[in-house]
Write a protein that binds this DNA or RNA. Structure first.
Lengths: 106, 106
DNA sequence: ATCCTAGGTTACCAACGGAAACCACCGGAA
DNA sequence: TTCCGGTGGTTTCCGTTGGTAACCTAGGAT
């Protein structure tokens, strides 16, 4: 169960959808490191678990909008806490990592 | 960067180490679904990133104790928030999943 | 007719993770 | 002595996952 929530792409997608609905290619461009395949798979799973809703909009080239559901917004709270913690502590992690890598290889 | 924190085993290990130090096999038994290989790898990475400390205790069969560092305890806060959210909302996720799976295959 | 864009799906392949075997150390039992 | 058990790992093999890139569908513009 934690495996779905602990999935790195899911966390990122939920974070990106926090401010408001986004289209498929917006997400893809915004997240940056994700492959199209994984983005579709991640969105399918998030939809299945009730975190996001998928809406097909009949524009000229059909566009698809993804949006957090109520449950998704609710999940966003702890997820953003984690994301903000990470941002606030990257420097400390990098420092620890550098110290670890630089220590004598016993 | 989120990839290390978003890793499901890391989240679990940090949660288990929350209350206090644990030995290798205690962790393995407690977590339950983890392979020995992944537990060692996860602990190495957590140690490298400064979240846990590794202490070899010279008992009769040498035992190894893992403990959260100050940074690890700090990370524990948002991680536990996420874990508790999950526990509190498993039912809703399961319901959404059942509804998704049961819906007409269009 | 052909191309382009949006959103996917598929084929192929490299890398990751799990299971289980093996290893090193040490003390005690046979 | 030799064997066994219990620590904390490492290695080998193999199945699954994820990335890359090509292809697909449908509508509009050129």
């Amino acid at each position: 169960m934690l495996s779905r929530i602990g999935d790195k792409w899911s966390v990122l997608v939920v974070s990106y959808l926090g401010p408001g609905p986004m289209r498929f290619n917006e997400l893809k461009k915004g997240i940056g490191g994700i492959s199209q395949k994984m983005l579709t798979a991640t969105l399918r799973n998030l939809e299945r678990d009730g975190f996001v809703s998928r809406t097909v909009i009949p524009t000229r080239p059909v566009s698809v909008e993804y949006e957090l559901t109520q449950l998704g917004h609710c999940l966003l709270v702890p997820v953003q806490a984690l994301a903000q913690w990470t941002i606030a502590n990257i420097a400390r992690i990098d420092a620890a990592r550098a110290a670890y890598d630089a220590r004598p290889p016993e």
